[in-house]
Amino acid sequence: MKARDYLIEEAMPLFWCRGCGNGIILHALLRALARLGKSREETVVVTGIGCFGKADDYIRTHSIHGTHGRALAIATGVKAVNPGLTVLALMGDGDCATIGGNHLIHAARRNIGVTAVVANNLNYGMTGGQFSATTPQGARSSTSSFGNPESGFDLCRLAGAAGAALVARATVYHAALLESLLVEAISCPGFSLVEVMSSCPVYYGRYNGIPDPAAMMRWWQESAVPASRYAELAPEEKQGRFPIGRLGGSDRPAFSERYARVQEAAQAGAGRWIQAGTDR
């Protein structure tokens, strides 16, 4: 299948705003699926609620359009009963890291074989550009007109520390890199997270002086630094910059592999447990 074959063409044009990064991520994902030769039937897309959470409207695989923040929980249930499926959780930063932050760290800890794709546009797009748990300190939003008093999460470090098997970051400007990171992540048996720094020109851009879609792309181009080079930057050079590429992960058996052993043990000792209650 080609990338376009995964696209629900009847649903086009995309619902997203002019210059929104979500479409770039969607396209990269479809190309990654095509590169991996994934069939529609073996692939399940789980979304939360938000602008990027509407990505399932355009994808011709199995899908469930869930609830805000709970995509990873739903995806966990899918993968746990059918480890053969390729399960993708598509979320905004609000979905994944703010309301759903607890599920994120536990999905990483559990090492469930789901790929989380996070469109990090640094705010809540769908509800009108309020700050989220990834909005940088000082940034403006529709609920932080005096500058965000809180600091934002580094999602990759968060997921990595919680035990994810693979964490990676790209931006919508680095679309080819994004595609190959997605290919890597989807091939990873444990929990993988691909954070995509994405443009929301309409809110984040407008509130922070970069309302033009091309200017926002330029901003990503300039702030992202390949991980190997980033490590060598002086602290002052790191200001306003972030690393992209594969950023970490830990090599542990995936949940399904470990749970298969639980099932074996339970089956071996079945006699002890099968008889519930006291027979009379």
């Binding site: 609830t67 995806a75 966990t76 249930g77 746990a80 536990h106």
Partner: peptide, 22 residues
Amino acid sequence: VYLQMEDEMASMGAVIGASAAG
């Protein structure tokens, strides 16, 4: 499969996902 989730919102979500997977 038995899953012990991180809270009841997640439990209900996982139940829905598992059921959707058959």
